[in-house]
Design a protein around this nucleic acid. Structure first.
Lengths: 215, 215
DNA sequence: CCGAATCCGCAGTGATACTG
DNA sequence: CAGTATCACTGCGGATTCGG
């Protein structure tokens, strides 16, 4: 397991040696949402070659960023999950995601949106100050995509699947609308979504999940 | 100028397409300290092939992250500098640098330390809360390395070269001590440095530039 | 089905030489 | 000083195959 290095005793250089290679940080992003099995990762990262995925998983495990687990009884199989050290990458993922969002004007042809990308984008733009003392529960629905956002006393929990309790507001997208967080905001502002529940929470939503403005 | 993409409409994926290729973020790191000429970048990034450097500079200019400038009168020549959009990458660089620092136990044989890496590491670990209302000026000296840290009312300015005004404390390293920020802290704690000035500011220094603890 | 290993063609990278 | 040119090499993308 020889890796190319940058020859510098520097935190950034170390980080890039460990998670700077192609696909690595996207794997970490998906694992930050929840543990995945190998085939879940393949599904959530369309286009990744299987040999690259298995190589990255070994490298990330070797560097202590992720770990292999044996899934519990009903499913059985291998689960990949972030270690505590891997979770320490989340601030960097959020910062990079916010910067990249400045370059997201229009989706390019063929680009897809996955649950994991939406969740991590939303976690990254969550404005804790604007949400101080807030409690609310949203559910986002689109074709092949259901996720929930629960804010409890200003603290965010965002995950795949329907809300654990009855959501305050359900936001439903039509098939032709990309439910990325940017498009979501724009669509919501233009009234292109279907709302069910406490409609006044849409404004709260748009305020708490603030879009980085493109330059 | 075709680039490989990840096929996802996602902020992180966008960011990785733009600055995820080899050497790109290290170039941005160096330009974040001050504008550089082409040969300065070559010196500050030992090992980078010249064709890779020129390719990255073109890509980064194309994405609006950096810009070419004609240097003013005395020097004349080309200067590369970050655009405002490029400066928006600094939080991500700091976050990655702090994470990478968790993996920096010992310097590896042959690894070097540059002014730019030390400055950006220090900027990244600067604790604004701990430095609130503080004003102080340090100068760090080592072989082939002089840099200054000026905190004015809790706000940090860190750059290459000697301090603009008389420093409150000068910290001088011996040739055998790597003046990376981590080694610097350890050496300073062990008294392996030469101090000149208000010695009590060493404790302040260690408090305001907090080391990320390795896991 | 899950979790990969293997093979091949090609694009990105590294090292060096060379040039306006 | 600020790059371009060349060439060997390695990593990546795409597909197929394989073992549990």
């Amino acid at each position: 397991m020889k890796r190319r290095d940058y020859g510098q005793y520097c935190g950034l250089a170390r980080a890039l040696e460990l998670i700077g290679e192609r696909w690595a940080l996207l794997i970490v992003r998906n694992l930050a949402v929840r543990p995945h099995r190998y085939t879940d990762l393949l599904d959530g990262l369309p286009g990744i070659p299987t040999n690259v995925l298995s190589t990255r998983l070994k490298e990330l495990e070797h560097s202590g960023t992720i770990e292999r687990r044996i899934a519990p009884a009903p499913q059985r199989g291998v689960l990949y999950a972030l270690t505590p050290l891997g979770h320490e990458l989340e601030p960097a993922i959020f910062a990079l995601g916010r910067w990249g969002a400045l370059h997201m004007d229009e989706p390019r042809p063929g680009e897809i949106v996955t649950s994991e990308s939406v969740i991590m984008n939303l976690r990254g733009v969550f404005d804790a100050e604007a949400a101080a003392a807030l409690s609310a529960c949203w559910e986002i629905r689109a074709p092949d995509l259901v996720l929930h956002l629960v804010v409890t006393d200003g603290k965010l929990e965002a995950g795949v699947g329907p809300a654990p309790a009855e959501p305050d507001l359900v936001i439903t997208f039509q098939p032709d609308e990309l439910p990325s967080y940017r498009e979501l905001m724009q669509a919501a502002k233009c009234g292109l979504v279907e709302l069910s529940g406490r409609r006044e929470l849409l404004d709260t939503f748009l305020r708490v999940f603030a879009i980085p403005q493109p330059v």
